[in-house]
Write a protein that binds this DNA or RNA. Structure first.
Length: 249
DNA sequence: ATGGTAGCGTAGCTA
């Protein structure tokens, strides 16, 4: 809550999408967020692992959630904003340490999740509705979405198979990367820094795992995008992920 | 090639 209070005070977002909330719905800070003005909430949590939520100052309609890979994980919620745009908040499985779907069931789950998402979005392609998809997608797709493309190519989150599958998902619904719309692909850009670094800012071995995608019909509404790097240093207990902010008219 | 941190909960898993 401390991090959210600071984010709200500094950035005043209309809508906040959270992933990895790691708490059951009964223990989600519903009242505290309502007091801060975020009265409209669609939460879908789970103790300790995964969990997603959309909290909003604007009314949310047609809220729902989906489950993936035949599991009960809480990794996807959606809602419709007052202007009719559909908002999806997603949390892709991290995938474990070993980038081999045979040796590592967690990596197999991640690849299957990406495939199933791609097929689902492909099947909804004809829908002309404006849509926004955000979340911790746990893949850094571009060369400069990681601190070292060469050193990260065998590391889960930046392997060729994950990149291929994330880009296929993006392609499946003609999603536009709203952040790279403003930041050239040659420029290093991260949203996550490991807790394991002695000095995250000095080593700056980051990855861009958190994304905001919009359908092409929303591109003219994009005003600015910003990754709040400074939040990685917020005391006393920063998240290893920082907020990705997109301003749309 | 390895180990490094955080959280939950009190071992070992997930991130």
């Amino acid at each position: 809550m401390g991090l959210l209070e600071r984010l709200i005070a500094e950035q005043q977002p209309d809508v906040i999408c959270l992933q990895e909330t790691k708490t059951a719905d009964e223990t989600f800070p519903t009242a505290a967020l309502a007091t801060l003005g975020y009265k409209h909430q669609h939460i879908h949590g789970m103790k300790s692992y995964n969990g997603v939520a959309i909290v909003s100052r604007l009314p949310l309609a047609n809220v729902g959630e989906r489950h993936w890979q035949g599991r009960e994980d809480r990794r996807h919620v959606f809602a419709e904003l007052p202007n009719g745009a559909e908002l999806h908040c997603c949390y892709v499985p991290a995938g474990g340490d070993v980038p081999d779907p045979v040796a590592n069931p967690k990596f197999e789950h991640k690849l299957g999740f990406l495939d199933e998402m791609t097929a689902w979005w492909q099947s909804r392609r004809d829908d002309a509705k404006p849509k926004i998809l955000v979340g911790d997608l746990n893949v850094a797709p571009l060369e400069h979405d990681v601190w070292s493309h060469k050193q990260m190519t065998g590391v889960v989150s930046h392997t060729p198979i994950e990149i291929e599958k994330l880009l296929a998902w993006q392609e499946s619904h003609s999603w536009v990367d709203a952040v790279r719309h403003f930041v050239p692909s040659e420029e290093k850009l991260y949203s996550w820094w490991s807790y394991r670094a002695q000095d995250w800012a000095a080593s700056d071995r980051g990855r861009r795992l958190d994304h905001v995608w919009v359908t092409p019909n929303l591109v003219p509404t994009l005003k600015q995008a910003h990754i709040l790097r400074s939040a990685r240093g917020w005391e006393p207990k920063p998240s290893d992920h920082v907020p990705v902010l997109v301003d749309m008219s």
